[in-house]
Design a protein around this nucleic acid. Structure first.
Length: 776
DNA sequence: AAATCCGCGTTTTTT
DNA sequence: ACGCGGATTT
């Protein structure tokens, strides 16, 4: 779901961060022999017997039951290296599926660090499927390789339109809700509980089956796929065209799936198809860390696995190499409260370690400040920020944390939350590009047809839309029809003609390099006027975001070029798709979560869900309160399943959080917290009470004023500026202050730079230095 | 057609 | 507290 955040927060994050490190899932640029021989590293060094067994497993199904911190990734990477080196398997015949692009990148790096292999297929299900579809989709009627990928936002826009067209009350049946139904239906294929919903003779049942049909039709008409479709369409192709399935299944001699507990039914079916010829499938997972039930993750996959891949070898990894005993005991005690689980024990040779600290705070600001103070203390002990992480249940909690850390001058990075691609100007530009590549994309058409303003209002678009619907043609084609234009009154007519001419002029760009194409688009739409029109009181420097995207496209193009040089069909390494089309399909699948850069020395802030698979010496978990963790929705949700199962997932989420910590764990909760703009009193989470008293100590921080002030030292130095001051900025040069707004963290200045125009700058970040009036 | 105002729901979690 | 959508102006 598109999370919305206010502009201050959005501008606070460098968009560069959001883009960095997204290339990992591609082929490496340099050509290196793909089949190494020799190599002297002992692939079994330092492995325990269970780990060895998993690495050395020859053929047939393998199930690795891996507790947290049990060296699972190590086992997978060593196994891949072992298969290549000792069993002579071509790297490009190995497929490894990870949960995120970032995990894929890391896994690739780790294998390559052991062995100089090239051409491994390591990616998420979604990236893999996108890649397959680029080659195979035209076998499905109505689709071309120019297909667009709709993200959640696009999907909701489309659904809203369809609901309106069907005269449903959009306020009662929200697009997002309908979207969730459809998603459940697709992810479970034919076996979901929503099949019941459809049969039910209720308004909802009727609406659902109607929308399901209309939505599917609309996507096909638009030559578009949503996230789920990426998987579902590949599945369809595999089912209906066994030849295609076999070409992939025979290619991949070994298939591995990480985080198997979080796969859904389609993913399971895909795994089965991909392994259908060689039968060498290794899955790795931990039911206790299953936290994506809401996304269709299905425990039945584990049971089905044993049925479809008979008598798999099962390897249990129970030794933990990550956490101290205090942390492990807490984790174990918590997870044991789950009724619905197979018992599994964890042990570690690490010592007891420091006690877990539980902190009771007055409110969310106090909580955030406390975290900042603790981090400062840890830094004084020589702890580096990169070794520290702060987790929370819901994204909105990041705000308070962010501003406290900012004031305390603690460097931090946020993973997730608002994405770069959700910014308005980026969405607009990307929509233009999508429409260039895929003229059938009506969602993109609607978004940009009047951006910048061409005098086209709702009425004009409605007229056009009805015309298009009658003739079953796209909006682009309708806009080209003189008959349609004649029905449109007023200013809109010329505007639509203008837009059509503009887009037609850009048609050739779809095979051009991405950066060039984007620049042409920008020129055609008139960046100046477009951005000026959007100008509002927001502190967003939209121009630099646009520049950022172009720069990113440039590096994408370079990478594509490199991959062309390195491609070697004989070894199974292919060049990237490239061009504007490839660029769009790739950016659709990346997220901020993938951008985590380990080499920056910053504290990491993220949701508990994003934390899966990571580890940090020091971990803070904020908001350990009833209705937050467990979340209120989980508490009320009994959704026809076993009572308490939603709570059990919340508990697993907490378990995942705890087990990320290596040495120190801080758990925080507040007595009062602001919700929807109102203060509410809070109760400590039931999960806190499940931690054995001997491994946890609690206290209510009682800071003296001096200490509190210490956090904020120098924070308000910026207040020394005044309107009319001449200032100097490292990038924009000299300018004059036009306006000052806000205070403290929110303090911002509107500055006129002769060379760069007027900018609104957050004083926290912009290093503005005042220059004397007479020094010019 | 664009600008302004008011009221309402919002906050799980992500590819 | 916030943005969005709808209604109401201009």
């Amino acid at each position: 779901m598109a999370t919305k955040r206010n502009s201050e927060d959005a501008s606070a994050r460098s968009s560069g961060e959001a883009l960095r490190g997204l290339f990992g899932h591609h082929e490496p640029p340099s050509g290196v022999p793909s089949k190494p021989n020799g190599g002297s590293i002992d692939l079994l060094a330092g492995l325990n017997p269970a780990q060895r067994e998993a690495v050395l497993h020859e053929t047939g199904p393998l199930f690795i039951l891996a507790g947290p911190g049990s060296g699972k990734t190590r086992v997978i990477t060593r196994r891949i290296a072992w298969l290549c080196r000792e069993r002579g398997v071509d790297p490009w015949r190995i497929l490894a599926i990870t949960f995120t692009n970032k995990a894929a990148r890391e896994m690739r790096e780790r294998v390559e660090a052991i062995l100089p292999v090239r051409g491994l297929w390591i990616s998420t299900f979604h990236s893999l499927c996108a890649r397959i579809l680029r080659r195979e989709i035209e076998i499905l009627p109505g689709y071309t390789r120019d297909f667009t990928i709709y993200d959640t936002n696009d999907k909701n826009q489309l659904l809203k339109q369809l609901l309106k067209d069907s005269d449903y009350d959009v306020t009662r049946f929200k697009p997002a809700m309908v979207g969730a139904w459809i998603s459940d239906w697709k992810n479970g294929l034919d076996r979901t509980r929503d099949a019941d919903l459809e049969d039910a003779e209720s308004i909802e049942g009727e609406l659902f089956s109607k929308m399901k049909r209309r939505y599917t039709e609309a996507l096909r008409k638009h030559n578009a796929l949503d996230f789920d479709d990426l998987l579902v369409k590949v599945h369809e192709i595999f089912e209906e065209h066994p030849g295609v399935r076999d070409s992939y299944a025979s290619r991949f001699v070994h298939v591995m799936v990480d985080e198997y507990q979080d796969t859904n039914h389609v993913q399971y079916r895909l795994t089965k198809s991909l392994a259908s010829i060689h039968g060498n499938v290794a899955v790795c997972g931990d039911p206790d860390q299953s936290i994506y039930g809401w996304r269709g993750a299905d425990i039945r996959n584990i049971l089905d696995f044993e049925q479809d891949f008979p008598s798999p070898r099962v390897v249990k990894l129970e030794q933990n190499y990550r956490s101290t005993m205090a942390i492990l005991k807490a984790a174990q005690a918590v997870i044991e409260k789950n009724f619905d689980r197979k018992s599994k024990s964890l042990w570690s040779e690490k010592g007891e370690g420091r006690k877990i600290v539980s902190l009771t705070c007055a409110d969310e600001n106090d909580e955030a400040r406390e975290i900042a103070l603790q981090i400062q203390a840890l830094q004084r002990e020589g702890r580096s920020p990169r070794h520290i992480a702060v987790f929370y249940r819901v994204n909105f909690m990041q705000r308070a944390l962010e501003s406290a850390l900012r004031l305390a001058r603690v460097p931090y990075q946020i993973i997730g939350g608002q994405e770069f691609y959700e910014r308005r100007e980026i969405r607009d530009l990307v929509s233009y590009a999508k429409l260039v590549v895929n003229p059938a994309d009506d969602v993109a058409f609607r978004r940009v047809v009047n951006v910048p303003s061409r005098g086209i209002g709702d009425k004009s678009i409605e007229t056009l839309s009805e015309f298009a619907a009658d003739r079953r043609i796209t909006l682009r084609d309708a806009a080209r029809s003189t008959e349609a234009l004649s029905r449109i009154r007023g200013r809109g007519r010329a505007g639509i003609a203008e837009f059509t001419a503009l887009m037609d002029g850009l048609a050739d760009l779809k095979d051009q390099p991405a950066a060039f194409a984007l620049e042409q688009i920008l020129e055609a739409i008139g960046t100046e006027r477009w951005l000026a029109e959007m100008a509002d009181d927001k502190d967003v420097d939209r121009q630099s975001n646009v520049d950022e995207l172009v720069t990113f496209a440039e590096s994408y193009d370079q990478m594509v070029e490199a991959s062309r040089l390195a491609a070697d069909p004989a070894r199974g390494t292919e060049a990237l798709e490239g061009g504007l089309r490839g660029f769009l399909q790739d950016i659709a699948l990346v997220s901020d979560t993938d951008a985590l850069v380990d080499d920056t020395d910053k504290v990491t802030l993220m949701t508990l869900h994003s934390a899966k698979g990571l580890e940090f010496p020091v971990v803070f978990i904020a908001g350990l309160e009833e209705e937050l963790l467990p979340h209120a929705r989980a508490m009320q949700d009994m959704s026809g399943q076993r009572p308490g199962s939603a709570i059990e997932e919340e508990r697993r989420l907490f378990y995942v959080g705890i087990t990320r910590a290596e040495e120190r764990l801080f758990l925080l909760h507040a007595n009062q917290r602001m919700f929807f703009g109102e203060f509410g009193f809070r109760t400590p989470s039931r999960f806190l009470g499940e931690i054995p008293p001997d491994v946890i100590e609690g206290y209510e921080p009682d800071r003296d004023e001096e200490e509190m002030l210490g956090v904020y030292d120098k924070a308000d130095a910026v207040e020394a500026l005044a309107v009319g001051d001449r200032v100097s900025h490292e990038h924009f040069g000299r300018g004059t202050i036009d306006r000052l707004q806000g205070a403290g963290v929110n303090a911002r200045a509107t500055v006129r730079f002769p060379a760069h125009g007027t900018k609104v700058l957050l004083l926290q970040y912009a290093k503005l230095t005042r220059i004397a009036q007479d020094s010019r």
